[in-house]
Simulated scan of single mutants.
Amino acid sequence: MAAEDPSVSGMSGRYATALFELARDEKSVDAVKADLDKFTAMLADSADLARLVRSPVFAAEVQGKALASVLEKAGITGITANFLRVLTANRRLFAVNDVIRGFRALVAKFKGEATADVTVAEPLSDKNLDALKTALKSVTGKDVALNVKVDPSIIGGLVVKLGSRMVDSSLRTKLNSIKHSMKEAG
């Protein structure tokens, strides 16, 4: 399965595939995905946790103890906790974001979903998120999971990347193209 999807290749793809197959066999794909989503949110919110995960300076034992504390506090148990412990013991915790991305891709494929990366200038309301999902579903014919990233530098509008297709309707891009055409005209 991993060989069919270029987004789940290499070392992180092998770990993602192993986790996905275990979760599928245990009929706990949704639970593992929810735990991984929780862990991803914790990584985004804590610079210390992100540093612990990325830095090769910490010994596996130190990373393992710190991770155990984080997992307990977050209530992450079972397959997900064991998997994160294995990544730590194998000195591969630095790749956790790539592994999670690969796992999500495998889950989407398994469920017949597509995933779109959406960049917005400010957080979208639930109503706007639903409208975007509906619009993307009408284009793809599949349910679309959204990875939303807030980037104020795009000023307004949004950038949607779905597979190899990208739609950039950001205000920054429009202003840059106007500036570029004015330079050519002048």
Rank of each mutant, 00 (worst) to 15 (best):
M182V: 11
S169R: 13
L124F: 05
E113W: 09
G75Q: 08
S170V: 02
F39V: 00
K109D: 11
A135E: 12
H180T: 15
L87G: 01
A59S: 14
D5F: 15
D126L: 10
K127A: 15
F94W: 11
E26G: 05
A59V: 12
A121R: 08
P123F: 12
R24C: 02
A131I: 02
M11G: 09
F39W: 03
V57Y: 06
V107E: 00
D45S: 15
T40Q: 14
L106S: 01
F20Q: 00
L106F: 03
K174T: 10
A131P: 00
T40H: 10
L71E: 01
V62N: 10
R24V: 01
G157P: 01
D35H: 05
L19T: 00
A60C: 06
A105Y: 06
F103K: 04
S55G: 06
L36C: 00
L19I: 00
G75N: 08
Q63K: 15
T17M: 10
F39H: 02
N147T: 13
M1F: 10
E184R: 14
V32L: 05
S169N: 11
V150L: 09
E72R: 13
N82T: 10
T115Y: 04
D117T: 11
G163Y: 06
I178A: 14
L93G: 03
M1L: 13
K174W: 08
K133N: 06
K33C: 04
A68T: 09
K65L: 12
L171T: 10
E61M: 06
D117L: 13
L71S: 00
L71W: 03
D35E: 02
L132I: 02
N82M: 05
A16C: 01
K137A: 15
A145S: 13
N97Q: 14
G163W: 10
N90G: 06
S69C: 07
